[in-house]
Nucleic acid binder design. Sequence first.
RNA 1: GGGGGGUUACCCGAGCGGUCAAAGGGGACGGACUGUAAAUCCGUUGGCAUCGCCUUCGCAGGUUCGAAUCCUGCACCCCCCA
Length: 428
Amino acid sequence: MNDVYGDLGWRGLIHQTTDDRFLSDWLRSGSRRLYAGFDPTASSLHVGHLLPLLTLRRFQRAGHRPIALVGGATGMIGDPSGKSEERNLLSVEELQTNIQGMERQMRRFLDFDAGDHAALLLNNADWMRDFSYLDFLRDVGKSFPVSGMLAKDSVRGRLERADGGMSYTEFSYMLLQAYDFVYLNQHFDCQLQIGGSDQWGNITAGIDLARRMRGVPLYGLTCPLLTRSDGVKMGKTEQGALWLDAERTSPYAFYQYWINVADEDAGRCLRMLTEVEPEEIERLEGCCAERPEARESQRRLAQELTRLVHGPSGLASAERATAVFFGAAIEDLSDEQLIEIFADVPSHELPAARLRHEGLPLPDALVAAGLAKSKGEARRIIQQGGAYVNNRRRTDQQTRLTDEDRASQTVIVLRSGKKRYALLRFTE
RNA sequence: GGGGGGUUACCCGAGCGGUCAAAGGGGACGGACUGUAAAUCCGUUGGCAUCGCCUUCGCAGGUUCGAAUCCUGCACCCCCCA
């Protein structure tokens, strides 16, 4: 057994545990079963899920047997932890789609075919669905003192809010998650639950329940919340969450997020989110201190995560897009490559005939592409040296675009200023 | 019910008969600098057009050679007195 516990500690991934010394020895002395839960709140995982998922992965690579538990049942209720207001309930169909989407992505991180330490993918709806309300109250609810529940931060916080309170439904969430732990222990010999630091209350609820119901000791470990040095949660962008689904967040956008991480945060992200060896991380941190402008840590972080989430081809396309976005001449590329690189960029279609005869005046092209609101503004941009065709500056107002200017079969790439791009697609 | 003030371009705000497409600031956009950061600096900022034309200052009319600026009516907003 690798010293996974020591590694987690070095990487700053241990926020709180129920029994520090025990866990350290226990994990060294055998292949253990552990789990983390993921509620299907969307059809894709996002960066917020990365930490527990990657931690499960670290355990598996160290020889343990992780369970990724998808909350088909708990997702119907909504976890009140860390939430300031009552949630909207998702429909059964939504949940089903979400579960499928999340399961597909989890396969990138965990190995479900690894023989004796294969990961398991379970859905708590499978054992909750047929559990009747009365049976649940008698078997599980009986072992839940209300006083204890009321004392949990997640509940107290909500009750203390002026506008607040919470519904009985959300109040019951904790019971479901607690029972999951007991069930997994009973049927899969699972003794450890991990999760974000906001899960502490739910995890300890499960541990208490197991002791009362079955008299067995269980253990918990939480990871810190991944936040930036200025306190903002990692993975939030102006456009919302940073998704792991390439359809929602392109590999390029994903890569860019990490390459733009602040110097102060880069080292911590490398430790917490990548599997780069400690010596290498320390070397990178040294570089970062000496030559911050090289931003080696950020580059490595972006590479590692993009490869992990989007695969080698996703990384390649993100890097190709990065080169293009930061000035490389655009030539010898196919329609497919261009469209992939500029996936996040608005594109407009024009008839191919516009390129023939006299050609398309550059100011008109800028307007058609949405880069200028009027021809006057377009002319101004050109005059000020801010107009680029396929990344080459064009300063002549009289420029007319012709077939010659196509970067690929049907596409001309226009740019205004440093980074406002737009595509024109010429179709017959 | 009586009296006073206001309505200007994306926003705030000057202008009170011609030299006003309309000061200034913010924002936005370009450029320089730079580490794809922050800050800073410079430029541009109604439309069309090869220095000329067109449309704009709450809305509708009017006076004048000429109006954002004066007059009349209308709409909306604010303040004071009852």
